[in-house]
Amino acid sequence: MSGAQPTVGRVTELVRATSNYLRDRPRLRLFVLLALPVTFLVAIFVIPLLIMGWYSFLSDMPPASLTLDNYAQALSTDLYLGIIWRTTVITIQTTVIVTILGYSMAYSLVRFSKKATLLLVLVILPFWTNYIIRMYAWMNILQSGGVLDTLLMWTTITSEPLGLLYTQTAVLIGFIYIWLPLATLPFYASLTNMDPNLIDAAKDLGAGPIKTFLTVTLPTTMNGIVVGIILVAIPTFGSFITPALLGGTDNVMIGMTIEDQFVSTFNWPFGAALAVIVSLFVVTAMLIALLLGTDLFKQQGVDQ
């Protein structure tokens, strides 16, 4: 007890002295503030990405000569082009379905629900449980003779088990399940923020509910829609857990191929090249989405 008090006092004194010293030295102050986070981000995030870029040009594990073969192999082999194509298709399907479902739900929550907050918590809570666990639940549901088949046959909707597991449908269901809660949030936020008087104005001018929606609500909330689309499309494109657990060997996506290069094939340079391609794909797609989003925004003359 007697030792602790002076120590605390001394530390407080030291802090005060230091901050008084820094008071007239803003550059030094900024350096003190940022030294730690910048060092950390550069060391654990930026440098690894640079090392990955360097690996992607290596002909073998280092030390090795530089080459473009990894990129040539990835972008000229039918197998890898096919995988990239399938990944793109599944990503687009997922994004479209999630956007429609998530937006409809956010819309209903904002316009029709009295307990919107409670319902929103119910929507987000499943998202806070573990990703793999949720995929595992769908394995149980979709497998041949699983929960879904049992229910469908019990209600005599089907007479034979569907066995959806290890099909592209299963992968789609998995992705929709994972991303629906996440996409709903920006949709909900943009719908809550919009001025409801706009809708009344459209009604007064003679527009029906659908016309009002298409000409007023949809354009006004375009910003939230773009955010939702980005939040869904990026992780779907790079995913490997969902296709690995629900898609099996017939529905390989690019993330699985990358994982394979590091976990079983041990061709790190080729894996690095695939990872660089995925990153470029994602960043380009995002920039296009943002540009389109802002364009639509400007056309509608909505400033925010």
Binding site: P37, A275, V282
Partner: peptide, 19 residues
């Protein structure tokens, strides 16, 4: 600081393996 949100997890994951 925002980039880890945008670059797919698997890309950063393998980059860290190599690092």
């Amino acid at each position: 600081a925002t980039l880890p949100l945008i670059i797919p997890l698997i890309v950063v994951g393998v980059a860290m393996t190599m690092f």
